[in-house]
Computed example of a mutant assay.
Amino acid sequence: MTTKEPVLSVGDLSARSGVAVSALHFYERQGLIGSERTAGNQRRYRRDVLRRVAFIRVSQRVGVPLADIRTALDSLPEGRTPTKKDWARLSRLWRDELDERIRSLEHLRNDLTGCIGCGCLSLRTCALQNPSDELGAEGPGPRRWIDADADAAAAHRPPLAAPPPDA
């Protein structure tokens, strides 16, 4: 960072981005943003870090895990700030995962009213959703959700290997 390049203190970055100082320090520890230190050991950020922070926050808002955000940022040449073209490319990669989350949330919304009475999908007392604890015979936990999630994941998962040729 040259002395002529405009820089932001952590407080300035926080105020301009709307992100708490503690979150900015966390992002830095996670390798999502970088700073340089002054002679007095104060952090200084290049102005383009504002765009990186915005990219991180929007990505988090749609549910992208920080590890995936870090991978995306690491894929940019020379650690540069994401451009509109970068966002378009990365959002296409994340779209399938987001669509799956949407399907899962729709499933939750649609089944919520039916299970609100007992609070569990496998209690013997749920005569409407689970008569005679039929789901309990399939194993522990929320069987409808476990099975639905497994079915949904399998429907969108590519086969592990090509099927064997017919004999």
Rank of each mutant, 00 (worst) to 15 (best):
D99V: 13
W87L: 11
L112D: 07
R43P: 11
V58Q: 15
R92I: 08
L24N: 03
D48V: 12
I33V: 11
I69W: 10
I146L: 12
R103G: 04
D133M: 09
I116V: 11
V58L: 13
R16A: 09
A148R: 15
L13P: 02
T113A: 14
I146Y: 03
C118A: 11
Q60P: 01
D48P: 06
D99A: 10
S14K: 00
D111P: 00
S75P: 09
L50M: 06
S22H: 08
V19M: 02
D149K: 10
A67P: 00
G31V: 03
D111A: 13
L90A: 06
S104I: 07
A150P: 09
Q30E: 15
Q42H: 14
V19G: 00
R46C: 09
L98E: 05
R92K: 12
N130L: 02
A148Y: 15
N130I: 08
E134D: 12
G79C: 04
G119T: 06
S14E: 02
G79Y: 01
C118E: 15
F26N: 03
T81D: 07
D147A: 08
L121T: 14
Q30C: 09
P142N: 14
L73N: 07
G34K: 01
L66P: 02
P140H: 13
R124E: 08
E106H: 09
L90D: 02
T125C: 09
V62G: 06
R109K: 12
A39H: 08
G114R: 08
T113K: 12
T38W: 05
P140Q: 13
L135E: 05
E100W: 01
T81M: 11
L66E: 06
H107Y: 15
D96K: 10
G34T: 11
E100M: 07
P65D: 06
R16S: 03
V64H: 05
C120W: 04
